[in-house]
Amino acid sequence: MTCPYLAYLREGDNKSFDHERPFCGATESFVSPMQADLCNDRFDFHHTTHCSIYQEYERNTELETPIDRMVSPIDE
């Protein structure tokens, strides 16, 4: 299971690209290629264990579901 905050976008964080890229809804920024392995739970990685952003965001967020947080600023 991939991170619930992960999305693939062409635009975000005041940047735009030719192709969709991995985007973190928690930090509202594009993520690096190596970070994307964690977001996607590739190899032996799991976002709940290895991603400090996920862990911190989960501790701090009061939203009901991660997807609420991720979708709203992008669709507006």
Binding site: D13, K15, F17, R21, S29, F30, V31, S32, P33, M34
Partner: peptide
């Protein structure tokens, strides 16, 4: 490389 992406430098 494998560390940075175009988001860091287009």
């Amino acid at each position: 490389g494998g560390v940075h992406g175009k988001d860091a430098n287009p």
